[in-house]
Nucleic acid binder design. Structure first.
Lengths: 101, 101
DNA sequence: TTAATATATCAATATAGATTGATTAAGTTT
DNA sequence: AAACTTAATCAATCTATATTGATATATTAA
């Protein structure tokens, strides 16, 4: 009677999915991803637009980057971030499996 | 230069999306939704299958129900829960908008 | 070299939420 | 009615993480 979505070795996948969800369930981080949809932005654009203290924006960017949802490139003083679409799609697909979307 | 996903009145939508994500980003809750994919289950089936203490399962079920992701019906001693597909789809759609899935 | 700007890091605090244990409530069986 | 089963609730604790303030690092400009 085990539901097949949770059968066999899907424990690891569930954990992966929830880790992804935890990361994007923070309002500022979801906004950052949202802002990056329209192309790469430097940190100062991001924190000014989101009205966050600089260090807080930097922190959330790090969280997103550590999970490989965004990438960065340095240009002079500035650091530009871009979204990693394929990574996000990967997790969305995983989630799909569990929620039958 | 405002990215259109965050323009005008989308603040409320972002909040709605993150609330949804917070709820399903808890491993036990995602598992519950997963288990309910295969049809309605009573609480005792759920906590035994997920290997949770009864009160903890009950707690997570309440969180899911309060957010209208599941519904319940009482039958004698037992309470049966079912998934609310349209509700979940609604939030998935919302998320879609922000993440460009 | 000094000053200014952009970003990152670190320690401390605050807060939200998961878990546990004990209890209550409701329905069922004997 | 008494005993039992299923589920919900409540208070207490534990844990994770968001936020803040201060500081450090790197790059550019004067």
């Amino acid at each position: 009677m085990k539901p097949n979505c949770c059968k066999n070795g899907s424990g690891k996948n569930i954990k992966q999915a929830t880790e992804f969800l935890k990361i994007i369930s923070e309002e500022n981080r979801l906004k950052i991803l949202c802002v990056l949809q329209s192309g790469e932005k430097c940190v100062c654009e991001i924190w000014k637009y989101l009205k966050l203290p600089q260090n807080l924006a930097s922190h959330h960017l790090k969280v997103l980057k550590d999970f490989d949802l965004i990438s960065s490139r340095k240009d002079g003083l500035k650091v530009f971030y871009t979204i990693n679409r394929q990574s996000i799609k990967k997790y969305a697909k995983l989630l799909n499996k569990f929620l039958n979307l």
